[in-house]
Computed example of a mutant assay.
Amino acid sequence: MPDQTKQHRFLRIRHVLEKVGLSRAQIYKLMGLSEFPKQINLGGRSVAWLEQDIDLWMAERHHASRQPKADALRKKWEEGLRKISLATPASQAVRLT
């Protein structure tokens, strides 16, 4: 049976730092860039992160690190299509669907 409590567990900053291996400054910088889960205000000056959000972020980072070649090829292909569509007059454009 999966651990249901893990989904709703709050992590304070020290636990987030340990879990993801980043510095406090890096975490807040990534949050400012909307590249890291936002903290949740617990009241007063207390904040925490949902463990589920941190786990999902880590899984996404892991997946992204395994896909750089596929992403680079897709980007290059999309740029090539964009160049073709810019170079081709609208009357001669071929619709790709």
Results as ranks from 00 to 15, higher is better:
residue 37 P to W: 02
residue 83 K to N: 11
residue 26 Q to M: 11
residue 81 L to V: 11
residue 46 S to D: 14
residue 76 K to S: 15
residue 32 G to W: 02
residue 63 H to C: 09
residue 58 M to H: 04
residue 52 Q to N: 10
residue 76 K to M: 12
residue 60 E to A: 11
residue 76 K to V: 07
residue 66 R to H: 09
residue 34 S to C: 09
residue 63 H to Y: 11
residue 66 R to C: 06
residue 24 R to Y: 07
residue 32 G to K: 06
residue 51 E to N: 04
residue 69 K to V: 09
residue 42 L to H: 05
residue 71 D to V: 14
residue 23 S to E: 12
residue 86 L to S: 12
residue 61 R to A: 07
residue 28 Y to P: 00
residue 62 H to I: 05
residue 77 W to T: 13
residue 41 N to V: 06
residue 46 S to A: 14
residue 34 S to N: 15
residue 60 E to R: 11
residue 84 I to F: 12
residue 77 W to Y: 15
residue 27 I to N: 01
residue 38 K to R: 11
residue 36 F to M: 03
residue 72 A to P: 01
residue 70 A to C: 07
residue 86 L to C: 08
residue 69 K to L: 14
residue 39 Q to V: 02
residue 58 M to K: 06
residue 34 S to Y: 08
residue 47 V to N: 00
residue 34 S to Q: 15
residue 23 S to C: 06
residue 67 Q to P: 02
residue 40 I to E: 13
residue 67 Q to H: 12
residue 43 G to W: 03
residue 48 A to K: 01
residue 67 Q to E: 13
residue 31 M to G: 00
residue 51 E to T: 03
residue 39 Q to Y: 02
residue 36 F to Q: 00
residue 63 H to E: 13
residue 39 Q to S: 11
residue 48 A to G: 02
residue 65 S to T: 11
residue 65 S to C: 09
residue 82 R to C: 09
residue 45 R to M: 08
residue 57 W to S: 02
residue 40 I to D: 08
residue 69 K to T: 10
residue 70 A to H: 11
residue 72 A to D: 10
residue 83 K to A: 14
residue 48 A to Y: 01
residue 72 A to V: 07
residue 81 L to G: 10
residue 68 P to Y: 04
residue 43 G to R: 04
residue 54 I to W: 00
residue 81 L to M: 15
residue 53 D to L: 02
residue 36 F to Y: 03
residue 73 L to E: 15
residue 79 E to P: 01
residue 62 H to N: 09
residue 48 A to C: 03
residue 50 L to N: 01
residue 62 H to R: 13
residue 65 S to I: 06
residue 61 R to D: 04
residue 44 G to P: 02
residue 49 W to G: 00
residue 33 L to C: 07
residue 50 L to M: 06
residue 40 I to W: 05
residue 56 L to P: 01
residue 25 A to D: 12
residue 23 S to G: 14
residue 63 H to P: 01
residue 25 A to G: 09
residue 53 D to Y: 01
residue 36 F to T: 01
residue 47 V to Y: 00
residue 47 V to P: 00
residue 31 M to V: 08
residue 72 A to E: 13
residue 41 N to R: 10
residue 41 N to C: 10
residue 29 K to S: 10
residue 82 R to Q: 15
residue 82 R to V: 09
residue 47 V to A: 05
residue 82 R to H: 12
residue 68 P to L: 04
residue 73 L to A: 14
residue 60 E to H: 07
residue 79 E to Y: 05
residue 43 G to D: 06
residue 56 L to A: 13
residue 71 D to H: 14
residue 49 W to F: 02
residue 25 A to C: 08
residue 46 S to M: 07
residue 78 E to I: 12
residue 64 A to G: 08
residue 37 P to G: 04
residue 24 R to E: 10
residue 68 P to A: 05
residue 52 Q to M: 07
residue 66 R to E: 10
residue 38 K to P: 03
residue 23 S to L: 06
residue 69 K to A: 12
residue 65 S to D: 14
residue 31 M to S: 04
residue 86 L to H: 10
residue 76 K to E: 15
residue 73 L to F: 14
residue 80 G to F: 10
residue 68 P to M: 05
residue 24 R to P: 00
residue 70 A to N: 11
residue 31 M to P: 00
residue 41 N to I: 06
residue 58 M to W: 03
residue 72 A to N: 08
residue 51 E to F: 01
residue 37 P to C: 06
residue 50 L to E: 01
residue 29 K to G: 04
